[in-house]
Design a protein around this nucleic acid. Structure first.
Length: 548
RNA sequence: GUCCUCAUAGCUCAAAUGGAUAGAGCAGGGCUCUCCUAAAGCUCAGAUGGUGGUUCAAUUCCACCUGAGGACGCCA
């Protein structure tokens, strides 16, 4: 069934046509304020401007031509020429009833399904995931879920940082400074220690620096011993990452790290040079963007003067690989806003190379430290993702223990996990992705107000009702009370909201919707007892609960 | 220096093609638990950095100013 908004838009379009306005879209939007009804159309004002007519007069004409039988009451003309619509009780009841039989809750699959490779999370091997990774991981996972639900084919790929200059140091440290016990205890902490120690040694001793560089060269040349060490580092890191991913319930289809593209880099650069896309400059191989005004003074280096490659090179090889293997329509990169220029360059080079896929950078704002600067891994001030989650579970458990002291311990743990992890995820998703924010324990782990536990509480109340009601059947729906109607209207707008998320990669619109839905449910819950109502009312209210 | 992003109540955040009286949460004032879990509900008070411009209509678009964060040839 088309959404209420779509149904209304069709009626408005018909009215426009009968008044002699050609095609065009019929703008119908959710009302900006419940006082104005459920939906509004600004068509009269837009068209009046074009026709140099009086908008209110035109609105009157449109209203007269409008056939809303069975959908909404007569439109109201308000303000400068708004047409306000109020969905009829019957239509709302029917629509909500149709949602009852639909596992997709009224959301039709997209008519234009695409194949999308989704690149997100991408932590670096031998380093812990920190709070900065939370945004990419949670945003990316959310977009993957929604895109799939809407009907797209999504391939999630965790492009981990498993290749690079840090391995010279890590391997040197592994060979000379490794503490096996500590490695067993906490692999990543030990790897970080090695990296840091070698770093300080290098400053004092040039020989160490030279040896570390040689270890890197040996690794890249395929030396078996170094390769084995490298492999173990990657696996140790991955299993630590995986514990966090499991806790967050985030999973990937592919895990093709930077190392997977190592062999493709040299031929890629040769090709770029041969095709005249790249040229030598100060010993390095560079791509200049003479055709793109914004990039004329910002060349991209694809090969260093010493012959080494950079991450722009890897990203290009990755795009080529993905295109060849999956033939996707789009690739989404959920990577922080500071990388905007990098992606602009890479995407432009890919275009020049003739790549067909449409790459899209989905940028997000930074998490700042107390000093309002971006948290950097090096400065040590960074907060680990593992610590954040551990703290979340602990706070949630303390709270559960005070609220429900009689609960058995393992059940308490289970609840704490759902609440704690939910709070962290929701803190991220409820915010506009471009917002920079200062990291705060209390904010990220808030359990009151516009938070996951608030939504979860609404859900718990619903489950509790059904637990007491048993598996009694429910329906038909009858909307007599105002809070019932408000709740039904909110439910009915669900299929209108979900696709909005993908228009501009904005999960916070859905989070916002869910918060409002929980609010209307809580109001309904206070005003309309379900289990104590008479049979027909009880049945209808149970149906509403089942949808919420 | 050039470019990018951002600026909304005391604090933390919203606002779906530009729409009507800018919504929440926290903190503060006042109410509501013999009643499906009060992790709740009801209620009071409180805001668009500055100056211009475009428009019937600007938090939203444009210009400049102020302030914050970031990116800019050999890290990723």
């Amino acid at each position: 069934m088309p959404t209420l908004r779509e149904q209304l838009a069709a009626r408005v379009a018909a009215a426009l046509e009968s008044c002699g306005f050609e095609g065009g879209d019929a703008p119908v939007a959710a009302a900006s304020d419940p006082r104005f009804g459920d939906y509004q159309s600004n068509a009269a004002m837009v068209l009046a401007k074009r026709a140099r007519a009086n908008p209110r007069e035109l609105a009157g004409k449109l209203a007269a031509a409008m056939e809303l039988e069975g959908l909404a009451s007569e439109p109201e003309i308000a303000g400068a020429g708004f047409l306000n619509f109020r969905i009829s009780r019957q239509a709302l009841e029917n629509f909500v009833a149709s949602m009852l039989d639909d596992p997709r809750l009224g959301l039709a699959p997209t008519t234009a399904p695409r194949r999308i490779v989704l690149d997100f999370s991408s932590p670096n091997v031998a380093k812990p995931m920190h709070v900065g990774h939370i945004r990419s991981t949670i945003l990316g996972d959310c977009l993957a879920r929604i895109a799939r639900f809407v009907g797209h084919e999504v391939i999630t790929d965790n492009h981990i940082g498993d290749w690079g200059t840090q391995f010279g140091k890590v391997i040197y440290g592994w060979k000379h400074l490794l503490n096996r016990e500590a490695l067993k205890e906490d692999p990543i902490a030990e790897l970080v220690r090695l990296y840091r120690e070698v770093n300080t040694l290098e400053i004092a001793d040039e020989a160490v620096a030279r040896t570390a560089r040689e270890e890197l060269v040996k690794l890249q040349a395929g030396d078996p011993e170094n390769l084995a060490i490298w492999k173990e580092c990657v696996e140790l890191s991955w299993s630590a990452f995986e514990r966090l991913y499991d806790l967050l319930d985030v999973h990937f289809d592919e895990r093709l790290g930077e190392s997977a593209y190592n062999d493709a880099l040299a031929p890629l650069c040769d090709r770029l040079e041969k095709q005249g896309l790249a040229e030598p400059s100060d010993g390095a191989l560079c791509v200049f963007f003479r055709e793109v005004p914004a990039l004329t003074d910002k060349p991209a280096i694809v090969r260093k003067a010493d012959g080494g490659f950079l991450y722009a090179t890897t990203d290009l090889a990755t795009i080529e690989y993905r295109e060849a293997r999956w033939k996707p329509d789009e690739i989404w990169y959920v990577v922080g806003a500071p990388q905007a220029l990098h992606f602009q360059q890479v995407f432009e080079i890919a275009r020049l190379m003739g790549v067909k896929v449409a790459p899209r950078h989905v940028p997000f704002g930074s998490i700042l430290g107390e000093n309002r600067k971006i948290m950097k891994t090096r400065s040590g001030e960074n907060v680990g993702l593992a610590e954040v989650l551990a703290e979340a579970l602990e706070r949630a458990e303390t709270l559960v223990a005070t609220k429900n002291p009689e609960l058995p311990v393992d059940e308490r743990r289970g609840i704490a996990r759902v609440v704690g992890v939910g709070a962290v995820k929701y803190a991220e998703l409820s915010q506009h992705r471009m917002t920079d924010y200062v990291f705060s324990w209390d904010k990220m782990l808030a359990f009151q107000g516009n938070t996951a536990p608030y939504l979860q509480n609404a859900y718990v109340r619903i489950r509790s009702i059904f637990r007491k009601a048993g598996d009694e059947s429910f329906g038909p729906i009858s909307l007599a009370e105002p809070t019932e109607r408000t709740l039904a209207a909110k439910l009915a707008s669900y299929p209108e909201v979900v696709p909005l998320v993908l228009e501009d990669f904005r999960p916070n619109l859905l989070a916002n919707y869910l918060f409002e839905l929980a609010e209307t449910f809580h109001s309904f819950y206070e005003a309309c007892p379900v289990l104590k109502a008479d049979a027909a009312t009880r049945s209808s209210r149970l149906a509403l609960c089942s949808l919420a």
